[in-house]
Design a protein around this nucleic acid. Structure first.
Lengths: 341, 341
DNA sequence: CTGAAAGCGCTAACAA
DNA sequence: TTGTTAGCGCTTTCAG
């Protein structure tokens, strides 16, 4: 007993214990087909007593069906992604599908590897962040023969379906509001991540719309690593020392924006009178700060939900819309003047 | 072509395309056994051209080996858990094992379900948060015949192996420091989560150590839902209105502690002179706040790493220590006096 | 170094 | 309502 090699229980064990054929046991355990109440009882009883756990590997191989949805995201520590995941889980919960998460750390090669790894388990669908992937990755997704939804961005060409906001448009929108409020000397602070395409697109849209208003970004600063809040503080200090005449700071995310806000408040600077601020994301996390940072919500939960719905529909053999643009709303918070000064 | 039903490529397709037996193709693709360079070339070439992705389901069924490790945690939005995951991934990365995450939302029944679901994929090991599980869950883990590591807590009896800190001891330790610094009227603020056993144990240890010093918790308050930062602010305000004579506030996590800190600073209260504060966790996220909150680090990354190492060792057939207690360090920050006042 | 045969544990399809 | 038969796509084992 003690030294016995471990062997999982099989249908056969349950079959023998209950005196019912393997096939019928299988039917009971899956709630498929008609089985008499008496037989069902016997089977359930035996399965429970033995502590039988079905082997999905064998099941999947035999049925050619896997109830898994591959979800591939850049990071878990960004807060953004857990929320997307929440939306996905919420919808998948009552479809019999299950999300399985893979993380890429914003590295295309890792994304490719993770994708390959996940596809080798033959999931029923893929939800993947962004529209930028290696050629090999795109090829894999195209030839996998399963629904693929790219989320959180729609500025580009999806492999199959896409759900998300236009970051370019988001950048433009914020720029317009800033100009409208009368700010003129604008600084930008962001992450040093050439591979964060969404941040890049926001920045592009932002500068483009400023340009249309005859304004250009006056100073900019990028960071990498470390605590975002602390970095926001430092960068803001550096930038204002260098360019004391700035009247607006646009941050590529709310965390560094919050750091900047705390710094300015420390310094006794009038926000948004003397300097206005805006971030991006709508992070609920920050709700308790002394002022609410102006921001724009990226529709994370909704993205997750809609993407999951597309997958679920397609898996069920239904048609589903394949391009959904969500519209982020600006939240002026307390750090962006609302009218021309 | 267009209406063709999708069928994944198989070893057989590669075999035919390369003119090499399926068996040899399999060997090449897994780097197993000796294969001549020429054959290898042909196979690799064919596989690449076809875009073959191996079917791990079939592979796992045939080999009775699955390179997956089930990781079961209460939540992804808690920040704590992504860090643990980081530690796990870091170690598993070079072992050929892959973490697969399941989330329980702190609900025992959901934990049981998630566990069942994951075990049905026959993973090579389980890493699960906490020591409290339903009887059924414990039974499943015991009879799965794979290594199981319970993490983030060691106050209890593990099913198999355990890695983590003693939350009871952590609570005691903080209480002692608070008393030592001379605080006497102490309030506690936490989450209303009867199922967060670790927070509960910290609280128990805390009150116990205070009692030894002849002090008891003077006031307490619990919250649920909402932004932790904002809640910390509100709760602190409420509590101080109710009990203005408090001289120390102990929070069950850093986020609400930070909210409290911001509130006190707003009010112009002298921290830590008039009121001292402490939280729990050592959240790097908060580094940019005006003051550093006193806290205690929960060794999250280390827990993940050690747990993964135990799994990896056991999977490799090696012995591995099965109870590892990590020791959290107090960080006094700027909100806890260091000597008797 | 390469190949053929036998199954992994389950389910689809059909038969009784 | 229940049982039988034949695989699913791969790897193990053993034979060349």
């Amino acid at each position: 007993m003690a030294n016995e090699v471990h062997r999982s229980l099989t249908l056969r064990d349950v079959s023998e214990a209950s005196g019912v054929s393997e096939m019928t046991v299988s039917r009971v355990l899956r709630n498929r087909g008609d089985v008499s109440d008496r037989t069902r009882e016997k089977v359930l009883q035996a399965a429970k007593e033995l502590g039988y756990v079905p082997n999905k590997i064998a099941g999947a191989l035999a049925s050619q069906r896997v109830n898994l949805v591959a979800v591939i995201i850049p990071s878990l520590s960004n807060m953004v992604f857990p929320e997307v995941l929440g939306g996905i889980s919420e919808v998948l919960e009552d479809t019999g599908l299950q999300p399985v998460v893979g993380v890429t750390d914003y590295i295309p090669e890792k994304e490719e590897k993770v994708l390959y790894e996940m596809l080798s388990w033959r999931p029923s669908g893929v939800i993947i962040a962004g529209l930028e992937h290696t050629e090999a990755a795109k090829a894999m997704m195209r030839s996998a023969g399963i629904p693929v939804v790219e989320i959180m961005d729609i500025d580009g060409t999806p492999v199959d379906a896409a759900v998300g906001i236009s970051h370019r448009r988001a950048g433009r929108k914020m720029a317009k509001q800033i100009l409208k409020a009368g700010y003129e000397k604008i600084g930008f602070l962001g992450t040093k991540m050439p591979l964060d395409h969404r941040a890049r697109k926001r920045f592009e849209g932002f500068t483009e719309a400023l340009a249309k208003g005859g304004v250009e970004v006056h100073d900019q600063e990028f960071y990498s690593g470390g605590s975002a809040l602390a970095k926001g503080r430092e960068m803001t200090e550096m930038m204002l020392n260098r360019s004391p005449d700035l009247d607006f700071l646009y941050y590529s995310n709310d965390m560094i924006g919050a750091g900047g806000l705390l710094y300015l408040l420390d310094q006794g600077i009038d926000v948004p009178g003397q300097i206005g601020l805006a971030g991006f994301n709508g992070v609920e996390l920050l709700d308790g700060l002394p002022r609410r940072l102006a921001t724009m919500d990226a529709c994370r939960r909704a993205s997750g939900r809609k993407a999951a719905k597309i997958i679920a529909a397609r898996v069920a053999g239904e048609e589903a819309k394949s391009l959904i643009e969500l519209t982020p709303k600006i939240d002026f918070g307390d750090t962006l003047k609302r009218k021309k000064s």
